[in-house]
Amino acid sequence: MDYNSNQNSKAASRFNLGTGLLLVFLLVPAALHAAPAPDALLHKPAPAFVRQDLAGKPVDLKAYRGKVVLLNFWATWCGPCQLEMPRFTSWQKQYGSRGLQILGVSMDDEPGVVRKNVSKLQVNYPVVMGDERLGNQYGGILGLPVTFLIDRNGQIIARFAGEADLNAMEDQIKRLLDRK
């Protein structure tokens, strides 16, 4: 009985040690890659980035401090994204002078198709190419479209995922534009 109990206890501690090591092995790399939970980004400063747009011009998010920024993650193969972008283009025209800046981040793998798409849709705001690093900074972009509304102080005010209510989004933009 004692022998068995002793053996069981040894086996249990070996198991616990093994399990612990396995968890460390699995969780440490995961934690290093882990993106912040999307909701954890709300009311926090928008993660900084500097990228080149499709024409090779640098786009630094910090440079838009003082403007209301609509940061839209999209792709050429994303149906709902294609429906949103003409609306974003019209907002850029309509509200640009009041301080709205729309920025597009394409999650396509190649810029060639993006250039064609942007030209076809007559997009009038900067578009940069995204990658997994930028996606992770913004809480993991694992479905499109995803759009962040950033206030004049660089704080993320809202996150819209999937087929968003564009009228509600526009109302929220207008409210932010009214705040000086």
Partner: peptide, 9 residues
């Protein structure tokens, strides 16, 4: 799907 999405997760 997308290579970027695959690299993310």
């Amino acid at each position: 799907g997308s290579r970027i999405f695959f690299a993310e997760s």
